[in-house]
Design a protein around this nucleic acid. Sequence first.
DNA 1: CACCATGGTTCGTCAAGTGAACCCAGGGTG
DNA 2: CACCCTGGGTTCACTTGACGAACCATGGTG
Lengths: 164, 164
Amino acid sequence: MTAAPPEPDFDRARCSVAGTLAVVGEKWSLLVLREAFLGVRRFADLQRALGAPKAVLTDRLNRLVAEGLLVRVPYRAPGERERHEYRLTDRGRDLHPALVALMQWGDRWLAGDGAPPLALTHRDCGAPVALGLRCAAGHDVGGPREVTATPTGRPAETPDTPAG
Amino acid sequence: MTAAPPEPDFDRARCSVAGTLAVVGEKWSLLVLREAFLGVRRFADLQRALGAPKAVLTDRLNRLVAEGLLVRVPYRAPGERERHEYRLTDRGRDLHPALVALMQWGDRWLAGDGAPPLALTHRDCGAPVALGLRCAAGHDVGGPREVTATPTGRPAETPDTPAG
DNA sequence: CACCATGGTTCGTCAAGTGAACCCAGGGTG
DNA sequence: CACCCTGGGTTCACTTGACGAACCATGGTG
């Protein structure tokens, strides 16, 4: 049942990336969510789309439901027995930027020459969408070097400016 | 040596998320990169910060170097022998948004009450930074439902609007 | 009633992650 | 010169996780 999620052996204290990966960092989890964003809701469809072993898929779905990223919703198609499907919750939907970020990286660095396999456009205006960092003052943030990371409650030591 | 990276068993065709995860989806990879963004460059420091087994860390570093996300740079501290450190490349640095996205999710959904462990601010103005989707026409995109995903080269079928 | 599809579970095998122990190069200390 | 320390690993025994094929239960169809 995957009732009690295991203690994450990542250190959650240092930064939330570890915590998030403790929830969705297992193999297939993020891909299950990707399919959910694409509208795939049923076990068999997920299994076909992903090619993941059924046992693993079962486990990941249970885990994602237990973590509140998906809900299992019963439904009945006309002339079929009751089944259930998996739907994103707000908590799950909020991972959208992370998936888009991973997708953008792949589009940029793995596609090679051709067009990316999936194009995202704004529903309202049709223009392509992209993820970007912006500060509360409205400035676009160019890259990691323009970002200062400060451990909470302490003054900034030597926070960033990584590979010079 | 991890010379030839294994064939990713994810389907890269459907969407780049799979491809990206084939590169950085193994356990610890993204956390290694997180530390790199925080300025940690040396093997022992990474090991201390992450608590990952040395063998795994060795493997992940080799893999990330082989994939071109990190470079191994020799250096010599005064009165010590030559060592080498791992630095982000452009390819690696471009994963910054993905890590920020994962971090933001954790800050939002895992922190509970308190402040997030790490605060990101704009170096130039000090304002907190956040990731957001915007379209090329300049509109802020509110969420996944405002995004249409289109497989390349085909017309949009029933692309999005996931969990109604 | 036999058959089929969905949505799983079980099982044997194989790959991956884990922690402890060990190793090697080079430098510093007595 | 013998000895120890530190960084950056490698090796090994063990546990956990992923894999794929087989099996099963429910309920509708011919």
